[in-house]
Amino acid sequence: MEQVLIAFAAALAIGLSALATAWAQSKIGSAGVGGIAEKPEISGTVIIMLAIPETLVILGFVVAMLILFSA
């Protein structure tokens, strides 16, 4: 049972942070595409902006790793 709870906690840590990242990226992505339509030269900047919320899922991943490996 304890194993199940640990796995569930790790899944929650990465799953929720992935959802949060996806939500943030959807907002940035739609705004970015709008921006690119008007100014194609900002494409590179938009791609980098799009990668910024991925910190959330990386943090979630680190937490999941800590849960799994320190348990």
């Binding site: 991925e54 910190t55 990386i58 943090l59 991943f61 680190v62």
Partner: peptide, 12 residues
Amino acid sequence: IGNIISYARMMA
């Protein structure tokens, strides 16, 4: 510190 943790992406 958050910036440093962000480098974990290289591993992920």
